[in-house]
Design a protein around this nucleic acid. Structure first.
Lengths: 121, 121
DNA sequence: TTTATATTTAACTTATTGGTTAATTAACTG
DNA sequence: CAGTTAATTAACCAATAAGTTAAATATAAA
């Protein structure tokens, strides 16, 4: 497992790391800011490791500023991950066991200007 | 790690499992169908385990048909995962270090009918 | 130059993951 | 029934992940 998509999904598969991204979406923050909500649950080195995972996946960018390490989100890798998931949109947009796909198949001859997914939300 | 979102992302973090979903997006398939492309790389029990991960994450549904186990995609969990990522769309849609967000901030007073993300794709 | 703050590294432990081979179960087929 | 096909389970192993505590590093501040 070393491809970017795997790195991205793997990094996102932990609730602590997702919470960190969520925090960062409200503004840049340094390590101790990010750590604060979790210090009752885990140690600071554990935080460092989580941030390292996010950084290795390219989901955050950590810089230096005196003794602080301000972090900011880098959404770029999410673009490909999101695009990958979009492939499967049809499998969650329709209820009733892919009813529409079925209907589309059996009515292709009759109707012809159907676009992509008639049903929305 | 036992929440659904973590289960989903974790299941997607392996290229073999993503390939299996990809295969299933072209049509339902039983275990040996799914295994075929990977049997040069790994054993059948390994395949069984990967499918178990996908099944536990709810990404596939496995049924019984004589001695076969037809599998089909269940996209539902991807809906939440995708929705989660959408939260961060702004972080990958804009180039130049969140330029737009910055512009939006400093021009809020002047312009007022801007909607969400002016720039598209 | 000592001290305090912010963060990382090292070394270690435990649990989980992803794979293996061998054996087992389940259902069909001759 | 004996044999074949499909798939799973059991038992094991090595690598990785996620946490720990203790020590080290880096910068600022007194």
């Amino acid at each position: 497992m070393n491809d970017q998509l795997s790195l991205t999904f793997s990094a996102l598969s932990d609730p602590t790391r997702r919470a960190m991204l969520s925090r960062l979406s409200q503004g840049d923050a340094n390590v101790s800011d990010l750590a604060k909500p979790f210090l009752k649950d885990m140690s600071l080195p554990a935080i460092t490791k989580h941030l390292k995972v996010l950084e290795n996946a390219g989901l955050i960018i950590k810089t230096k500023e005196a003794q602080w390490r301000p972090c900011k989100i880098n959404g770029a890798p999410l673009k490909d991950a999101s695009a990958w998931m979009e492939q499967y949109r049809q499998y969650w947009e329709e209820s009733f066991d892919r009813l529409e796909e079925y209907l589309k198949t059996i009515t292709d001859a009759k109707k012809s200007k159907r676009k992509k997914h008639g049903k929305k939300k």
